[in-house]
Nucleic acid binder design. Structure first.
Lengths: 167, 167
DNA sequence: TATTGTTATACTCTATAACTATA
DNA sequence: TATAGTTATAGAGTATAACAATA
């Protein structure tokens, strides 16, 4: 199948390990803060944040699923939890009766506002404290192409159901 | 408590989001590969990899827990699964009868060897493809201080039971 | 026929607390 | 008394497949 060298060079390997370690620790710390402060999981926070960022406070289920969650049923589950907590409202979309539009409520915005400062403080204290402004810029400029590459080359993850063309 | 500005600057925020997105996608892709190729979760792979890296092929449970897993019972669970799959053996430590020494088996090493090439290929194809060697070095030099900082400042995560001094 | 979303179900993983045994 | 590990248990999260409704 392939005869390329089957290993990463030591720098790559160490970088990969550091990346995994750093984000695991960061994720863990942030999840704890979100749970304590707002009784939110990270996925739930991401959903609320996306809705809060939207000019309308709304998104279709599919758009949310494509960004945050990996399966549709998973999103239905999470949206159900958020709706039960009155942080979100679901309603049939006006233009496409199949779609469901999710909208953040005032309570959702309030909770988001309550949770955000601590969230940011954790991120700053853990991730950014040892980095200068120039370091952050450098990091950003390294991550951007990786992000774009990953977005453009869905390895074979995602594919919640079956996307566009497919054998 | 604190009157520091309650938000990250746009560059920091974008960097944080990119970091989360990149590692989420990478993690997801890698987990899928591990599951398909070796029926391993990422945690299980990490445990096997740690044991395989050790000169003796062994580690104490506690040492494994401190690096990979966040609760002791979680490690017991995972070690139990690995042992049931004959990838690992557990035995009381010779020097400290309270401790349990986990050792990777030949089958464990075989599985590790089977899984590693694909693992590395996913990491290279997804993470390193858009980065030059200098980019990787730069990324490594940015992640290292963050990693050290996080290790030295356990925010209040981990603490599986109760560490050294504690109120 | 394809797409959107939900439901039922099953499974994996994680964490807390109670417990045993050794240092 | 503190440390190492296990167990029981409970809960959160995820994915697959079958389903209903609209385009």
């Amino acid at each position: 199948m392939s005869d390329s060298p089957p290993s990463l060079d030591p720098v790559q390997l160490g970088t990969y390990f550091d990346l995994i370690e750093v984000t695991s620790l960061l994720r863990h710390a942030v999840e704890q803060q979100l749970r304590e402060t707002g009784d939110l999981s990270y996925v739930q926070f991401q959903l609320l944040a996306r809705l809060g960022d939207s000019p309308t406070g709304s998104h279709r289920m599919t758009d949310l699923a494509d960004g945050v969650v990996y399966s549709r049923s998973g999103l239905t589950y999470q949206a159900g939890l958020l709706e039960k907590a009155a942080l979100v409202v679901r309603a049939p979309s006006s233009d496409d009766e199949r779609s469901v539009t999710v909208t953040i409520t005032d309570a959702g915005r309030t909770l988001l506002a309550k949770v955000l400062p601590g969230h940011i403080e954790v991120v700053r204290g853990l991730l950014f404290e040892p980095l200068s402004h120039d370091d952050v810029k450098a990091l950003a400029s390294l991550l951007a192409p990786v992000r774009d590459h990953m977005r453009s080359a869905p390895p074979r993850s995602a594919a919640p159901r079956r996307r566009k063309g497919d054998a």
